[in-house]
Design a protein around this nucleic acid. Sequence first.
DNA 1: ACGTTGATTTCGTAA
DNA 2: TTACGAAGTCAACGT
Lengths: 224, 224
Amino acid sequence: MRLVVARCQVDYAGRLTAHLPMATRVIMVKADGSVLVHSDGGSYKPLNWMSPPCTLREGTTEDGAVEWTVTSKTDDTLRILIEEIHADTRHDLGVDPGLQKDGVEKHLQELLAEHPGTLSAGLTLVRREFPTAIGPVDLMCRDAAGAAVAVEIKRRGEIDGVEQLTRYLELLNRDPALRPVRGIFAAQEIKPQARVLATDRGITCAVVDYDALRGMDDAEDRLF
Amino acid sequence: MRLVVARCQVDYAGRLTAHLPMATRVIMVKADGSVLVHSDGGSYKPLNWMSPPCTLREGTTEDGAVEWTVTSKTDDTLRILIEEIHADTRHDLGVDPGLQKDGVEKHLQELLAEHPGTLSAGLTLVRREFPTAIGPVDLMCRDAAGAAVAVEIKRRGEIDGVEQLTRYLELLNRDPALRPVRGIFAAQEIKPQARVLATDRGITCAVVDYDALRGMDDAEDRLF
DNA sequence: ACGTTGATTTCGTAA
DNA sequence: TTACGAAGTCAACGT
């Protein structure tokens, strides 16, 4: 990892072209050759960057100015013209052990796949990620009467999710072997507008308690 | 801007919970208080971060270890436990003049507005950003027979874009003065699932060559 | 202030 | 390897 604080001008040409006027910024060069140009504000996204794999070449212009050229396989180029360097340090960071996440949609799907009855009494799982031409249905189930039930799972239930489930239901209900298929929209939190739209379309809403589900899972684990 | 290279452990709790084991990393603290934790790989995205507005509090644990706590208004917290500091520097960057871009969707729309015939032979422009109650249609055109055609433009064509165009078409087709209105889904690249959905709804897909369009435009400029 | 849309999105996972 | 959906997405723009 190399950290450079410098007054610089940056030009990118690739998917689009972008230009940064001369100003003082932080340039981060990672071990894999990728380059990030950060300002003192904004979000975690750099003003300009080059993703790996890429190569950095340090040169000088005909005027004698320092010029870095970063090029990728796909001919994208990032050109950094450096007017003045305020700091330039290198650090050996080693390999990072990586990030551990918890609480994302996938985990919620796993838990609901193991406990479909919490969505609606008597519900049983047919399969997860049930494939259709327009994408997989999160959970395909059957209710106590044997009728098909499509479940769409979100961390936060918004209108997009209801639209998605509606598309699946429309397609699935064309299949004589499955129909009638009803829908359940499951989320940790369901926005009022999404609930209204779902209800209007005959879709059941189910608010899921993630901690309770995880608790059920732990309880089961202890039995074995 | 403050740059710290340190052996640290990071824990985040907010929308999700995430944990980074003890390792050497770069911590970037921006002028607005936002914090980015970078490793020596990956892309421009930090391993962990806190977006502004937020406040950084430097403290010590009961064991005497250095502990930074970053909290946002929405109760998200980022806790950085620092074992050893390798470098700690501050730099005055000033306000950045900002990025200038060219080649994004807006430009694609401008080019297609000038050359609607590349989407479908005989197509002519009625107007760009044609207003409707649920938002503007990118291009409203007429075909050789005089029938209305709504065009939705994306850089990458995915299902969301088809949904958007479908909503417009549904609304436009309620207007006796316009109907029947057909749709064209134009993008530099169209995903298979989006194509399936579009075709199923009677929407034409058009793959657009941005460079070729730009070439046509340059050729025209030379005539004047 | 709030919602919608785009992005050099990046990232993970399944086919 | 590719393709697709999700993201602690972020940021810009219009209402």
